[in-house]
Design a protein around this nucleic acid. Structure first.
Lengths: 166, 166
DNA sequence: GTTAGGCTACTCGGATAGCCACTGTCCGAGTAAAGTGGG
DNA sequence: CCCACTTTACTCGGACAGTGGCTATCCGAGTAGCCTAAC
């Protein structure tokens, strides 16, 4: 029961991209520098976000990443699934069917109650993550910020942000 | 986001122990044979359950494992935490404080909203697992079983169950 | 026959290798921009 | 002066090593039962 560190980096990156203007871009190097993480490693997760349709990529010099859809349509679940994969945390190996005297499969038509309970819990987990959008996160931060965080972000954007080469 | 295979083995083992009479015992070898898994590996997780106070151990020949408390007081969460460890799946590395121009820590008195959301979701996950007791699992299985599963279990117990050497 | 002692065999417990996924990194394909030469 | 071509440099994309934790295993500590032998 452990989520990779890439999840946190991906969420922070998307949150950062969400405060850009509509035609703003940020390179992977800029995102990595701002968060103090490895550029090459962050690229790996940004590619996952790209494959999942969460961010768009602009190739070439002055290229970079930007959101592929509005920030209020991107949920935490989308990001987590894109980075960690869609498979549930609990994989039922159906060990109830194994052992010395395995019963025929027909006897196990009823689903494994253990698996059902674990998946039910995970469904609640995912539903909660589905409720939180990237836009929600940013508004929450804005409300508790005294201005310092926003100021730092704006300074960084002024130095590293690019515009979409329409 | 992946739970180890040991979790499933541990849950099935506890479920099996729950159907024993009050003075019944099962050795790790018997539990492993019934579920078709490695004995040595299952031992590792049974020890974790023992440390967590979920099962009691009876040493010596004719020894084995039995529940340390009633089946309706053992939840799935207890077992999962005993095997996987109590730490949450999402560990906030506070990367918002890192980067080229780290702000002083006083500016970040407000908790990280991302961390808060992830932990809130995991709290729901754990609460759901806390609602399901081992007794619940067994009653559910009984209701959907046509008798085959119970029969196989009783046959196995008749051959491998031991009694507490009072 | 009874009983004390020792022995055996079986159990759990912790310490020890092996393997896979996550972590971290590198080089190649592609492209927009800048430089350059000709018209 | 303007334009088209070449070169360049920078970006993302996928393929390549390194490491921590889960998987699987082994041997040692401890104990109940059994056997033996003396009383």
């Amino acid at each position: 029961m452990k989520l990779g560190d890439g999840v946190e980096q991906a969420i922070h990156s998307v949150t950062m991209l969400a405060v850009l203007p509509a035609d703003g871009l940020l390179s992977a190097a800029a995102l990595a520098e701002f968060h103090g993480v490895s550029t090459s490693y962050l690229l790996k997760h940004l590619q996952a976000l790209s494959r999942a349709g969460i961010v768009d990529t602009v190739p070439g010099p002055k290229g970079g990443y930007r959101l592929a859809k509005p920030a209020d349509e991107i949920t935490l679940l989308d990001i987590v699934l894109a980075v960690e994969g869609p498979e549930p945390a609990f994989r039922c190996k159906e060990i109830r069917q194994r052992g010395p005297n395995p019963l025929p499969k027909e006897r196990f038509n009823a689903p494994c109650q253990i698996n059902a309970a674990m998946l039910r819990a995970e469904r609640l987990y995912r539903n909660e993550l589905r409720k939180v959008t990237v836009a929600d996160l940013n508004t929450s931060v804005m409300q508790t910020d005294d201005g310092s965080i926003e100021k730092r972000g704006c300074a960084f954007l002024g130095e590293h942000m690019r515009l979409l080469p329409s």
